[in-house]
Amino acid sequence: MKLPNLYFFAAIALSAFFLGSCGKSGGEFAGYEYMPDMGHSIAYEANVNTYYRFNTNSSEEEYQEFAKPRKPVAGTVPFNKTATTPGGASEFTFPVYAFDNTEAGRNEAMKAITENPLKAKNEDDLKKILAQGEELYVVYCASCHGEEGDGNGQLWNSGDGPYPNAPANYMTDDLKNATDGRYYHAIVHGKGVMLSHADKLSHDERWMVIHYIRSLQAETYDLPTANGQNKVATPAAEETEAEETATEEDKK
């Protein structure tokens, strides 16, 4: 059998070389697609706005319009287990926050919301709440208010940081003696230059964070675990009992 001409091999080698050398992604180029009809979602996907020609639901303009981040329909109410209403907490209602984003609303909230509706059932539960509260606090609060809650996070950095306004210091008598409503209102509506963080933390998560802030204060001021302040209980059984009786008294 005679082998094909040398040029035949040369042609194969060259075409293979050229085929292989194209299509590497990097920089502005996203690379080539392989079987695009399996790669693209026909349904709308969050944070995706690459229109694909096999999408038969809508024109490209309509698709782009729908793929944008959108506000919920007017009147949409988030569902959650607990609620913060002027009357206190109740289970299985919609947490419509009843206080306006005004100075008057803030004062009302500070008067009305005096206790944390997210109650720890026992010491283990409290530990879990505080652990989760700490995680959330570190992510969403600590860069301004400081890991220690002293109002000196890395963004403020004793006045040298990039942020131009001093964050609140939780370790002051003023904030130690403030009701929980002051904290909750600030998270929902913001205060001063701080804006609302309602989209970052769910209802329960806000209360976990407040639990954690209270535990930081309790550590600094060496407060007992009872009296609504949540220092992580020491192993001594008496303290836990004291706390449980306090919670029961609160319920009454």
Partner: peptide, 16 residues
């Protein structure tokens, strides 16, 4: 190179 690049089709490593 052809096989390697064919495997990389549809991948976007280093896309910036």
């Amino acid at each position: 190179t052809t096989v390697n690049n064919a495997i990389n089709l549809g991948r976007q490593q280093n896309y910036a």
